[in-house]
Design a protein around this nucleic acid. Structure first.
Lengths: 204, 204
DNA sequence: ACCTGAACACCGTTCAAGT
DNA sequence: ACCTGAACACCGTTCAAGT
């Protein structure tokens, strides 16, 4: 039973895993369905039994990655962390995920996954990841460590900052003169967000 | 003189312009050197007289775009604006540039232009754009509306926030529930950054 | 159901050749 | 200098066909 059809049920999984490896090694642009099939030892048309086209495979990859991001964020900013700590962890957690899963990150936010509307599973996974941040804001408001206001909008601020940093890190586009030690940088960046960019105030 | 060689000196310019149009219309991934040449009415090998390869054409595109971004930022945050106003304009200026030049924006920050090291002109243009932000921070510190600290690091905070927002806008990945009116959103986002995410404080 | 091979319309890039 | 055509090694996708 394990000898006959070689790839029975796990060809799908094997295709996805090969795709991740390929992107990690050579970049999103170098990913080809034919190469993925080759790595799996099947003909170049076999993947079409599992994915309608290349975009669908990438969407599946992105969806899986959003679930991983969700778990990662929850680990660092979830309910077991006091709200302020959770919020301060957000930026560095986001950046560390991007660093450790650069290939995933590029697929998640690259043009390939831009039309999420066609992939409901992908949309849902992305929403749920954002919701982790939103919930941290809500908890912060309840604990009165975050000011009042639309939590979605405030979450967007925190998300954008982490996302902006992560994109720059992943693309190695941090401006020259940036101090080394990305994790610390993300921490200080989060601190700057919470302290604001205004002159030193009496308390803190 | 305008009839004989058809493309004399301006084939290069024509190739770049066709490339921008193609990306705008069909996305970065749809850009092909052959299509660009076709649009210019030359053979598919003619572009190699002007660019060593496809990556070099993209790098040139990115460099031009960084110069445009530089000018755009300078217009909204340059010396003629008081520092606090300049900083508050930054996010919306960044976002509006990304909106108006979505194709450029994708090339500037996509994987194609990631290895800027190979293109010194591109690196320089990117640095100078970042420097506009940095200078606004420095002016803010001089005017005591921005707290003390490494200006590069503080500029990075402001830049990351604008960049994060812009990426999400361009990729149409703003989370659902995001209030409409991106410009206003960027403004409020900047305000949130400057006010911090802390409970209402006495002044302001 | 799952996989294959041939085929079609594309790519980027190289190279010998033309003016 | 600038451009061309043929050629090579790739693509994504479709389709008739095999088990």
């Amino acid at each position: 039973m394990s000898r006959t059809g070689y790839h029975h049920g796990d060809l799908r999984r094997s295709l996805l895993s090969n795709a991740r490896d390929l992107i990690e090694a050579k970049g999103v642009q170098a990913l080809s369905l034919r190469a993925v099939a080759r790595l799996a030892g099947v003909s170049h048309t076999a993947p079409y039994r599992h994915f309608p086209d290349k975009a669908a495979l990438l969407a599946t990859l992105a969806e899986d990655a959003f679930v991983r991001l969700q778990n990662h964020l929850r680990k660092h900013t979830g309910e077991e962390h006091p709200p302020l700590e959770a919020l301060r962890n957000l930026a560095s957690a986001y950046v560390s995920f991007a660093q450790q899963h650069a290939a995933d990150f590029r697929v998640m936010f690259g043009p390939e996954a831009a039309d999420k509307s066609a992939y409901p599973g992908l949309s849902k996974a992305a929403e749920e990841a954002f919701d982790v941040v939103r919930q941290a804001i809500v908890r912060g408001q309840e604990g009165q460590v975050v000011r009042r206001g639309d939590p979605t909008e405030l979450a967007l601020v925190a998300w954008s900052l982490g996302h902006g940093l992560a994109v720059l890190v992943v693309n190695q586009q941090l401006p020259p003169g940036t101090p080394p030690g990305i994790e610390e940088l993300a921490d200080r960046t989060a601190a700057a967000l919470y302290a604001g960019l205004q002159p030193a105030r009496p308390r803190l």
